[in-house]
């Protein structure tokens, strides 16, 4: 059955509190999920008071501030700090987003709650295990398949064709950075993530199905015509509302369903 209670060893405990310096005037506290595989302790929420006058504007800046100045054991992924690599995807203030593009000022609550992406095994602190999702990505064979021999120059697309991938506003499936905020926000993915591919991977499937240069459309649709892989999407739309890049994975899924209807109905 779907589990509605955390296992005993996952119940989150109260953590330590790290006070800011007494002379700090502009203080915001951050509650951060902590769990380490190296001891037998339950996860806990540590509270860090951050002097915002000594820290950049984004949540990632605060995390880096905490790691460099308060507790070096706080563990998280980050790389580009400009919303293009997808490494720092985490749940901030109850919403999956990128720490680097989430402004601290946008969190109106007294305390900024920072958790790893939901419903994933945790590697450590804010790092979720995404191996299963990368494998699901590999399973849709995300590369161009064409039997037509390579032309002397590039395979041509009309501007309208490329709009199908990039979107007229630049928000098409090609703009996805695979941060998996959407898949880990999806209840269908929570309950059946081992079989349902999830919005992020389906959006990439759509990227190749909609690619006018790709000649394996039928084969790709065959691979998705499954009660779990594609049709476990019940149009809940959490994917689209949480996407930190403003993309629309739900529209991609609808497009795949439309293509299958066009073919099979």
């Amino acid at each position: 059955m779907a589990e509605f209670k955390l296992p005993k060893n996952s119940v989150v405990q109260k953590g330590k509190i790290f006070k800011a310096d007494a002379d700090a005037k502009n203080v915001k506290s951050f509650k951060i999920y902590r769990w380490s595989p190296d001891d037998d302790e339950n996860p806990r929420m540590d509270e860090f008071e951050v002097n915002l006058d000594d820290c950049g504007p984004m949540v990632l800046d605060a995390l880096i501030h905490i790691k460099s100045k308060i507790d070096p054991t706080v563990t998280f992924r980050r790389s580009c700090r400009e919303g293009i690599c997808g490494s720092c995807a985490m749940n901030i203030d109850g919403t999956n987003t990128l720490a680097c593009t989430k402004s601290i000022d946008d969190v109106k609550t007294e305390c900024v709650n920072v958790n790893p992406l939901p419903h994933r095994p945790v590697v450590k602190d804010l790092i979720p295990d995404l191996n299963e999702m990368y494998a699901q990505y590999a399973s849709i064979e995300p590369w161009l398949k064409a039997d037509t021999p390579l032309p002397e120059r590039e395979r041509l697309q009309s501007p309208e064709d490329s709009d199908l991938l990039n979107g007229k506003n630049g928000h098409g499936p090609s703009a996805c950075i695979l941060c998996f905020c959407c898949s880990t926000a999806c209840p269908s993915y929570w309950w059946n993530g081992d079989k349902y591919l999830g919005p992020a991977v389906l959006m990439q499937a759509d990227r190749f199905i909609s690619d006018t240069r790709d000649e394996a459309t039928g084969e790709r649709l065959d691979q998705l015509d499954d009660k779990f892989k594609l049709y476990r999407c019940h149009t809940i739309m959490n994917c689209t509302s949480t996407c930190p890049k403003g993309l629309n994975p739900a529209a991609s899924i609808a497009n795949i369903k439309r293509k299958l209807a066009e073919r099979n109905a």
Binding site: Q223, K227, F228, Y231
Partner: peptide, 11 residues
Amino acid sequence: ARGMGADKSGF
């Protein structure tokens, strides 16, 4: 991830 493939019943 590939499992036993698509069951072709989804559509």
